[in-house]
């Protein structure tokens, strides 16, 4: 089992209602899962708990058999470096680094930098001619492709994508989505995709819906 959540609950300070209530789910390696739900239903929070970006108040989040709950900041940071890859809706590239340096960044942090792989990914994602540019010189679709390449360069075991095409037009979104799924499938990693788009959600093998902090 790649990822396992048991009775995970999360309440933000000052909030009267828990954003996540007793969530349980499993994900196998190579499995692709779409997570849908209304705004504020807790999708992003759930994704953050799975990626070790935040901690649950109760319950167990286990990745590759390792419980994330007792890990300290450094432990979770190491997990994010080596095991998890996150694609954000806002791309969140590092503006001070070139496209090439952005793509290689996480792989180098994880100690798994392979220049050939970076080149191949860049070519596959149509970024071969843009490696020396800075993120602000690229279009939105190009920036999201850089973010995907950065996530996949270190070959993470789990890819978490938070509305990765939310800022793109439909045609670009389709292209980026297809490329991402293809590349994730090649690595054998698990994928959890948070999306509002019914169209994209139906294209993945498995789908879960989150409503008011509970899976339906």
């Amino acid at each position: 089992m790649l990822l396992s959540l048991r009775d995970v609950t999360k309440t933000y300070p000052g909030a009267e209602v828990s954003v996540l209530q007793r969530i349980s789910l499993d994900l196998e390696s190579g499995e692709m899962l779409a997570l849908t739900g209304e705004s504020g239903s807790g999708k992003s929070t759930l994704l953050h708990l799975m990626g070790g970006l935040d901690t649950a108040d109760r319950g167990v989040v286990a990745l590759d058999g390792v419980d994330l709950t007792p890990l300290d900041d450094k432990g979770r940071a190491a997990l994010r470096r080596g095991t998890v890859g996150v694609v954000f809706q806002q791309f969140n590239l590092i503006p001070s680094l070139t496209v090439g340096a952005n793509i290689a960044f996480q792989a180098r942090l994880a100690g798994r930098h392979d220049p050939d792989r970076v080149q191949r990914l860049a070519q596959r994602l149509g970024l071969g001619d843009h490696l020396a540019k800075y993120p602000e010189q690229l279009s939105g679709g190009q920036q999201q492709r850089v973010a995907i390449a950065r996530t996949l360069a270190p070959q993470p075991r789990l890819v978490l994508a938070d509305e990765p095409t939310g800022n793109l037009d439909e045609a670009t979104a389709d292209t980026v989505f297809a490329l991402m799924c293809e590349l994730v499938a090649e690595t054998g990693a698990g994928l959890i995709l948070v999306t509002h788009s019914e169209r994209l959600a139906t294209r993945l093998g498995r789908r879960l819906h989150l409503r008011a902090g509970q899976l339906t």
Binding site: G51, L53, D73, K74, A77, A78, L79, R80, R81, G82, V86, F88, N92, L93, I94, P95, S96, F105, Q106, L109, A110, R150
Partner: peptide, 16 residues
């Protein structure tokens, strides 16, 4: 923060 948060998310602890 928008510059620091991605680096943190990619695995650099806050203390570092």
């Amino acid at each position: 923060l928008p510059q620091v948060a991605p680096v943190w998310a990619l695995g650099l602890p806050r203390t570092r």
